[in-house]
Design a protein around this nucleic acid. Structure first.
Lengths: 122, 122
DNA sequence: TTTACATATTCCCATATGGGAATGTATAGT
DNA sequence: ACTATACATTCCCATATGGGAATATGTAAA
């Protein structure tokens, strides 16, 4: 009988917040929703991907809790749930001590942040 | 904004630092290396995965620059390059205002500066 | 109702990913 | 030179992933 030859554990199945933001398109969606809550169509218009693509990425983000969905008639309004990103921030904390401890670095750091206001990717 | 010009897409080929830490095993490796630099075998012993598995994940981390490799005889000593994780921290910054206080580091640093300017310089 | 609209879901495909076994490649030790 | 060690790489497999087209579902509008 043709048995499979010992498939081993795959177990990648479950998304967590880290893998969720690993995808650049999902980060783009989050960046948009961080500015204001939006419907799917508004996002489709903004990012110019197909509607299923947007919906499916939103579905992943919703599954890990990074966005929430509110039904309004036939619309669904999505918004970011920033608390769900905290595990990332907390994980990053172990490295903060290595970063800028000079005034110059602090300055450029803050400037960079300010420039990022209109949203762009890394 | 995330510019995804029309046409090309779905080429996930290139790892970036976000997708690199999307994998839980790679985060485990980083956590170990954050404590001290280690050779591959030391990591294998520590995490109890196969050597190729460890090597391949290290290779991904090396490719995105999150770890660096130093050859010493037949050993390779890996260490974390925390600066390469900064894009993540910067990306996260847009959400910090929602949980308020993760700028501890910067805050305490600014306080230090103020105290220093207070009187005792060379 | 009938139709238009907003969005989710399914189907299918191509490719990416992760894992282990086997193997290749230096380098150290004898 | 021969062997052991440390590690990278290759090969093969099974599964996960992302994308678009087509379709289903639910709701509002006519």
């Amino acid at each position: 009988m043709g048995m499979y030859s010992e498939g081993m554990s795959r177990v990648k199945t479950t998304y967590d917040v880290f893998s969720a933001i690993g995808d650049p398109k999902r980060r783009v969606l989050i960046e948009h929703l961080a500015l204001k809550e939006m419907t799917v169509n508004e996002l489709v218009t903004a990012v110019k991907w197909s509607q299923p693509t947007v919906s499916k990425h939103l579905s992943v983000l919703k599954k890990v809790g990074v966005v929430s969905e509110v039904k309004e008639g036939r619309y669904r309004r999505y918004r970011v749930q920033p608390e769900e990103l905290r595990p990332i921030q907390e994980w990053m904390h172990q490295f903060e001590k290595y970063w800028g401890n000079t005034l110059d670095q602090l300055d450029s750091y803050l400037n960079q942040i300010q420039l990022k206001g209109d949203g762009n990717e890394h």
